[in-house]
Design a protein around this nucleic acid. Structure first.
Lengths: 337, 337
DNA sequence: TTGTAAGCGTTATCAT
DNA sequence: ATGATAACGCTTACAA
């Protein structure tokens, strides 16, 4: 299992190591025939430049760290896939770590990755991280970091975020226009900024359409189907089921729908639903679930571009990219006349 | 952004670099006070050993490569999470790559990762890879590889696989015992060995219970919900809907159920369903879907252990671990009397 | 217990 | 166009 090195190739051909190195990095002068001979021989000998040595001598790792809260849900899976694809095409390798929705784990991951000499970091913060000072300090010192999603617009770093207020507003307005009178919002975590923004959009729609305050309600839930089910249990117990729910995500919606159906409610005849951050399940459940689709690929790619910009030019301006979505209306929120 | 190196710390304290190195690697003799002083000063100076240099000088990367066909579905997401957790606890870093169910991409990934000096590889092969010779050659030459899932028992390498035949048999037998007479198997890809094994289990149950041959059928599908829907369209067109379906995975089952419901069939009253490789959706759909649960965590951890064994002892015996599952029976396959 | 110095496999500068 | 060699930051014999 001994690895063939640049020296072995050089010796075999009676050339210097520099020539071999040059053959593999076309930025230097080298005669075409020598290059081809070297490449051919190297191939035969099974030589491949050792990336670790390369990294050491160039003082960069060509590694990018990506930290996501989880990748059980499609949303971050897709982001990670898109990021990998993007960075590999640029010659980087991607180290993915997940924080398991745990702030301390996230901090650990950041440290691990920075210590591993990643050339830059893409961070999708976990729930409830109001303590980004450590990251921002590194960022100030010139370490390239781009934030993705779940981050306040005001933080001084490049970031890619989704226009939650706007699309939450549209989703809610759609329910109002379908003539649902009593509409509740199942709202995720209050200390999660995307939840907060979706709440804002919800309220905005309520105000615009002058929905009386007794006809809407904002209920803090979590992000999991299980939690959607629990909330519905409470509401059923209190005989407090509205005409429609707008949910912070599809999983909450699916959990809630399940529980309502089990209790004899019909969707959408008795209760209508709109989800958010559309998943592939939206089209597979009965009734199909209306939802706001977020363009994960686009978000990821944009974040990748911003990061590479910062890596290649540490003077690059801080940039905030706000991405738009798409409201896909399906059976779960259509009122039959 | 200049990194503090071992030399800086040594100079500051007027000790040699070896002492600093020793302070950070407790396998050598060093006076307790010196060590503490060094560690303290290093901390203050913001020194952290450069892992790349460490890797180069030790000739190992402390990186593990993990290759999965995809991680959009929970199954591989969970595997990857479990693998990360396991290897990080052992001091390794994990590079994850996905092959997008594409044999050539998989081969590329393997090459990338081996060239990146990963100390070992865990490979969950993609659909239809009957050409593992490249991997096995490296394996023979002593490069540590462990295969995970979707791999034939006969290949000469350590591997962790699921007992598909057995659990497919149980799932099918359960349908027979519920007194469903006509049972079809939606069978994934014929050239995918796990599909093949599940077909075997299905047939075995049919033979054991002497189900007449005109009462069962094996239909090749894919692995996606969409493909489940397409098959059902065909069957409806041909007026060929059985009493029950046993599906190669939950996604096929969910797609099929969706299409049947849309066409007025009731589940399980008209058609019953059992899935495989249980997903969290199984409990969220109506009716809840019976399925065979595979212990992803256990499988991943075992694969990790086998790999570390091989890394640490290249003479280690080849080992095949066969994992068992669990049949979770839910409403979708229960016949009301 | 500590220090010296060679070595890990590259790249890059400076000669030739 | 090619070669010699220092440098990257660390580990680890070997010497002291």
């Amino acid at each position: 299992m001994k690895h063939v090195t640049i020296k072995d190739v050089a010796k075999r051909l009676n050339v210097s190591v520099s020539s071999v190195s040059r053959a593999f990095n076309d930025k230097y002068d080298i005669k075409k025939e020598t290059k081809e001979l070297i490449l051919k021989t190297a191939e035969e000998m099974g030589y491949f430049p050792n990336p670790i040595a390369k990294k050491l001598s160039q003082n960069r790792s060509l590694n990018i760290g990506v930290i996501v809260p989880e990748f059980i849900n499609e949303y971050y899976s897709e982001m990670v896939i898109a990021l990998q694809e993007f960075f590999i095409s640029k010659g980087y390798q991607v180290l993915v770590m997940q924080s398991n929705e745990n702030v301390e784990q996230e901090l650990k991951n950041v440290k691990t990755l920075i210590h591993s000499m990643t050339d830059g970091l893409i961070i999708a913060p976990t729930v409830g991280n109001n303590n980004m000072s450590y990251y921002l300090q590194h960022h100030r010192e010139g370490y390239p970091i781009v934030f993705l999603n779940r981050v306040e617009e005001s933080i001084p770093a490049s970031k890619v975020i989704f226009n939650n207020v706007k699309w939450s507003f549209f989703a809610t307005e759609h329910l109002i226009r379908q003539n649902y009178k009593k509409i509740y919002h199942l709202a995720g975590y209050k200390d999660l900024c995307v939840s907060e923004e979706r709440i804002q959009g919800f309220k905005k729609a309520m105000r615009k359409h002058k929905v009386p305050i007794e006809n809407y309600k904002i209920i803090e839930t979590g992000l999991l189907a299980k939690e959607g089910m629990e909330i519905i249990e409470d509401l059923i117990f209190n005989h407090d089921i509205p005409d429609a729910f707008f949910c912070v995500n599809d999983m909450i919606a699916l959990g809630a729908i399940k529980k309502l159906k089990d209790n004899g409610y019909r969707v959408p005849e008795d209760v209508a639903f709109v989800g958010f951050t559309e998943t592939s399940m939206a089209e597979l459940v009965t009734p199909q679930l209306s939802s706001v689709k977020q363009p994960t690929y686009e978000m990821a790619k944009k974040a990748g571009e911003l990061l590479i910009e910062r890596i290649e030019n540490s003077e690059a301006e801080i940039e905030t990219v706000i991405i738009n979505g798409e409201l896909n209306i399906r059976k779960s929120s259509i009122k039959e006349k």
